[in-house]
C-alpha cells in the first residue's frame, strides 16, 4: 500500500477507442491521484464523456489499460463490477428512477448490492440527502423536484454507495442557470471533503475554483493539461485558446 501506484486513484495508459471506423479516443494517458479534482473540458464530440464512461465500464475500449485503485481492469464482468463499486457517476440528465421516491432512489442499490436492511439503508440515504441539503424531499418523486434538486438527489444516490471516485458527466448542462449554482455548491463541498473527482464540465468558474488540474480534449486527444491558473491565463495550444474564447463570448 506504500508504493506510488496505490496513491493513484486512476491511471489510464494509452487508451484507444473506436466506434466502428471513428477513432473516438486517441492514445489517452492520464493519472489522477487520490483526492485530486480533475476538470475535463473541450468542444462537444471531443471524447470527454466517452473517456469517463470507460472508467466504470459503461463503454468498452479496444486498446490501453485502466488501473483503478491499484487494480487493472480487464474486459470481464468481475472487473466491471469492481470498477462500479469504486466509482459513483452523475449524469447530465440525472437519470433518477421516476417510479421510485427520492429515498428509494438512494436505497435501491444499498439494499440490492450492499444487502443492507431497509432501516439502515434509509438512515444512510437520509444522511447523504442532508449532505446535498434536501432531506425534506425524501418522500417525493423525482418529477416533483426542480432540475437542480434532482441532480442533487443523483449526487446523493451515488454517494450512498461510498465511492472512492466520483465521475461527473456534464452535471449542470441540462440545468437552468439559476439551478447550476446549487449543484456546483454541492460539488464544491464534496471537493473540500477530499473526494476524488473527475468532472466533465463547461463551468469554468468551478474549474478555476475547485480543480487541481484542467484537461483539455479535442478530437479524441488530450491537447493540454495544466493547473487552472496556467490553463486560463496562458493556454498553450491554439485550439484551447479558441475554445476558451468561445466560452467567454
Amino acid at each position: 500500500m506504500h508504493d506510488t501506484a496505490h496513491d493513484l486513484a486512476v491511471q489510464i495508459t494509452a487508451l484507444q477507442k473506436w466506434y466502428g471506423a471513428f477513432h473516438v479516443l486517441k492514445d489517452i494517458s492520464l493519472s489522477v491521484s487520490r483526492g485530486a479534482r480533475i476538470v475535463i473540458c473541450g468542444p462537444s464530440g471531443s471524447g470527454k464523456s466517452t473517456l469517463i464512461r470507460c472508467l466504470n465500464g459503461l463503454e468498452n475500449y479496444q486498446q490501453g489499460t485502466v488501473i483503478l485503485g491499484g487494480t487493472r481492469l480487464g474486459d470481464n464482468a468481475r472487473d466491471t463490477s469492481l470498477a462500479r463499486r469504486q466509482t459513483g457517476m452523475v449524469f447530465q440528465n440525472f437519470n433518477l428512477f421516476p417510479h421510485l421516491t427520492v429515498l428509494s432512489n438512494c436505497t435501491l442499490a444499498l439494499r440490492r448490492v450492499g444487502g443492507m436492511a431497509r432501516g439502515e439503508a434509509e438512515s444512510l440515504a437520509l444522511h447523504h440527502l442532508e449532505r446535498v441539503r434536501i432531506p425534506e424531499q425524501a418522500y417525493k418523486y423525482p418529477a416533483q423536484l426542480s432540475g437542480g434538486q434532482q441532480q442533487r438527489v443523483a449526487i446523493a444516490r451515488a454517494l450512498c454507495m461510498n465511492p472512492r471516485l466520483m465521475l461527473f458527466d456534464e452535471p449542470t448542462s441540462a440545468l437552468d442557470p439559476e439551478m447550476i449554482k446549487e449543484v456546483l455548491e454541492v460539488m464544491t463541498g464534496l471537493a473540500h471533503d477530499g473526494m476524488t473527482m473527475i468532472c466533465v464540465t463547461h463551468e469554468m468558474g468551478f474549474a478555476r475554483e475547485v480543480a487541481d488540474e484542467v484537461v483539455f480534449m479535442d478530437q479524441g486527444s488530450i491537447v493540454e493539461q495544466a493547473a487552472p491558473a496556467t490553463f486560463f491565463s496562458t493556454p498553450n495550444h491554439p485550439r484551447a485558446r479558441s475554445f476558451l474564447n468561445t466560452l467567454l463570448h
Binding site: 466504470n56 465500464g57 459503461l58 463490477s81 462500479r84 463499486r85 466509482t87 459513483g88 457517476m89 449524469f91 440528465n93 437519470n95 433518477l96 428512477f97 421516476p98 417510479h99 435501491l108 442499490a109 440490492r112 448490492v113 443523483a154 444516490r157 451515488a158 454507495m161
Partner: peptide, 25 residues
C-alpha cells in the same frame, strides 16, 4: 437508455435492473 446506465453505474446486476427499474416503468 440512461435508466439502465444509472443502474449499472450503481453496481446493480442486470436482473435487478430489469426487475426493479425497467419492467416497473
Amino acid at each position: 437508455r440512461g435508466q439502465k446506465e444509472a443502474g449499472q453505474a450503481l453496481g446493480l446486476s442486470r436482473p435487478t435492473i430489469l426487475l426493479r427499474i425497467e419492467l416497473p416503468q
